[in-house]
């Protein structure tokens, strides 16, 4: 037996290969194949997310020529100009107002729809599909439809007003109404997605909670306040975040409905960036606006992570 073992000792080692293998492992981890699987994502993220992010920050410190290329380093001048330009201040103000108009309304309506659609009824699937339908309609299609609805002469809205003997409104051309009209379109557009997520959240709530509440004789609104909303809070948080980010990023509706007008009243931030960058080809100043937008969105997301995470633990 001793001999057998000695033999093993001799044949077993192959020290050179073992050492090389160990080195490989040290550098690449146990399964270097992982990098192969990650490669496509990594390359694409590098080229289309990380590089451009830093490039944007870089560009924001430069003046740019007519082709949009950086020419002179000017430090924070773009930012200084941005914050002292009345257009940007107005644009930022409109964007905040727009968030305020759209986010709470979308979520409250979607929540009501989701609560109704969560009832166990025959054919409820049909209603769920209808309520979520706007998710399947593109920004472009819905904007064009609403353009038609808002049309001062042929549109249905003014028709209805005239039925009641009211004067027609110039929905998209009146500075007092334009942002409201764009908001209305946006709320309608986002209802589908928000509804779908909230309904999913409602359906994830354990049935037993309601059963025991029913046995104790708790009423509908009591259950809503004490069970449904607390249990739904992680979903609500998620939806609030996503809606806010969506609102910040609004572009299509503006491009099709108002082109930022009238009098810049609907020139939301992304649309103004678009104009700066791709109409005026001023990449430098557009980039500085992008950086500001980026930090706003980062802030919203960070808040979601901070508060959202904690709420999730309730589940």
């Amino acid at each position: 037996m001793a001999m057998e073992r000695a033999q093993v000792e001799r044949t077993g080692g192959l020290p050179a290969t073992v050492a090389r293998e160990k080195l490989f492992r040290r550098i690449l981890g146990r399964q270097p194949a992982a990098w192969l699987y990650l490669m496509p994502s990594l390359i694409l993220f590098a080229v289309f997310v990380f590089y451009p992010l830093f490039k944007t920050i870089y560009l924001s410190f430069f003046l740019s020529d007519m082709k949009g290329l950086p020419t002179v380093f000017i430090g924070l001048d773009n930012y200084v100009r941005l914050f002292s330009s009345p257009e940007f201040i107005q644009s930022a103000g409109s964007t905040l107002l727009f968030v305020l108009y759209t986010v709470p309304a979308t979520i409250i309506i979607a929540l009501i729809l989701a609560l109704l659609a969560n009832e166990k009824l025959k054919g409820i699937g049909f209603f769920r599909t209808i309520f979520s339908s706007s998710m399947g309609i593109s920004v472009a299609a819905s904007s064009v439809v609403w353009l038609f609805i808002f049309n001062p002469s042929a549109g249905i809205l003014n028709r209805i007003l005239s039925l009641f003997g009211l004067r027609g409104i110039n929905w998209l051309a009146d500075p007092n109404w334009a942002l409201f009209s764009v908001s209305l379109t946006t709320i309608w557009l986002h209802l589908g997605f928000t509804f779908l997520i909230l309904l999913g959240g409602l359906q994830n709530i354990d049935e037993h909670l309601y059963e025991s509440a029913n046995i104790e004789g708790a009423g509908y609104f009591y259950q809503l306040r004490r069970i449904t909303l607390p249990m739904l809070s992680p979903t609500l948080f998620f939806v609030i975040t996503v809606s806010m980010i969506d609102a910040f990023q609004t572009f299509g509706q503006i491009d099709l409905l108002t082109k930022g007008g009238p009098g810049n009243s609907t020139n939301l931030i992304v649309y103004s960036i678009y104009q700066k960058a791709f109409i005026n080809f001023d990449f430098g100043s557009a980039s500085s606006a992008v950086v500001v937008l980026f930090f706003c969105i980062l802030l919203v997301t960070a808040l979601q992570f901070k508060f959202g995470e904690r709420k999730v633990h309730y589940q």
């Binding site: 289309f48 560009l59 980026f294």
Partner: peptide, 20 residues
């Protein structure tokens, strides 16, 4: 790192991406 890309709005990379 992957998750962090979810926080980067697509507009943030739009201008250089267009150039690329």
């Amino acid at each position: 790192l992957f998750i962090s890309t979810m926080m980067i709005p697509w507009e943030a990379s739009m201008i250089p991406n267009f150039v690329t």
